[in-house]
Amino acid sequence: MEKDLEVDADLETAEKDTEDSTARDSDPLDEVYERELHGPFDLDEAEESEGYVDLGALRITPHEGLQLRLEIEESSQRVIAVTLDLAGSSLQLQAFAAPRSEILWPEIREQIGSSVESQGGSVEELNGSFGPEVLAKLPAQAADGSKGFRAARFIGVDGPRWFLRGVLGGPAALEPDAAAELEALFRTVVVIRGDSPMPPRDLLPLSLPKDAVPDAQGSVAADSAGNQAVQPKMSAPRRGPEITEIG
């Protein structure tokens, strides 16, 4: 009987060692980000609809010092992205239609890697604040003429029938402290998918806020209805960077 107990103990120890080894060998990129708890949110999940900047498919939380830029596609003249500029860093947002029972982010990460490498850049796949993400570095020329690189940090979250991608640029691409406020804004984004059928990967339509009024320089700011002190300014649409395009 004592021998049997010893065998059982040995088996229990072996199982624990196997579990520990599996935990050590597991890929951190397998970890799942709990979007429903931490955001970004679907319209049905948002606690309230007031207080946001309404950009059509996206609603953005106002923040002191935040500036918004809408970016257009030259060929179609449609708005394809919104960029949040804050404290010297940027966060570009794009929302896409997605299948009901399929996630897009794993395949899109591969496409980003292929695109960056075809441009002579390098990519590193990491486990970050929102789960798997891609750090891309593209060749660039510094102000003094020396060779350097331009960094972009791609984050993505799959929602119900939509996918939201963010691209962090400037110091936020490499420095966690610089990225913190923009990451917090990303979590508060509300995505409006709508009920209309759309092919997967089609961009969800973006638009200027209804109460936005351009000034002489083309800047746009919301009116005084609520939180004017922290309402972000908006600049006229412009073309977005090619590194953020996906097919």
Results as ranks from 00 to 15, higher is better:
V32D: 00
Q94N: 10
V53Q: 03
P28W: 05
D44T: 06
N127S: 14
L66M: 05
H38R: 12
I60W: 03
G131A: 05
A140L: 10
E31V: 15
P106E: 07
R78P: 08
Q67A: 12
L104G: 03
A151W: 06
L104F: 00
E102R: 14
E47T: 14
R69W: 03
W105T: 11
I103A: 11
L93I: 07
E71T: 09
A23S: 11
L138W: 01
A143R: 15
G56M: 00
E133I: 03
Q92K: 07
L68T: 01
E45Q: 15
L37S: 13
A97V: 02
H63I: 06
A98M: 11
F130V: 01
L91G: 10
E71K: 13
F96K: 02
P139M: 07
P28Y: 07
L70W: 02
L29V: 01
Q94W: 05
L126A: 06
D85H: 15
L70R: 04
E124C: 04
I112C: 09
V116Y: 00
H63K: 08
L86H: 09
R150P: 07
A95R: 04
L37R: 11
T22E: 11
A46M: 08
V53K: 05
G131V: 09
L37M: 10
A98L: 01
Y52W: 11
L29D: 00
A143N: 12
S21N: 07
S118V: 00
A46I: 00
Q77N: 14
P106H: 11
L104Q: 08
A151P: 07
L138Y: 01
R24N: 03
I108V: 14
T83K: 09
L66I: 04
V79Q: 04
A98T: 03
P99Y: 10
A95H: 01
A81G: 10
I108W: 04
E74W: 03
R150H: 10
D20N: 10
K147D: 09
E64R: 03
G113H: 00
L86Y: 01
P40Y: 02
V123A: 05
G65H: 02
E110G: 12
R59M: 13
L58W: 02
D44Q: 11
E47S: 12
P62L: 01
G51T: 01
R24M: 13
G65L: 05
L29R: 04
V53A: 11
A151I: 03
R78S: 05
A152K: 08
D30T: 11
R69V: 03
S146H: 08
E64D: 06
V82Q: 02
L126C: 07
F149E: 15
E124G: 06
L126T: 01
G121E: 11
L43F: 12
D20F: 13
L68F: 00
E107F: 03
D25N: 12
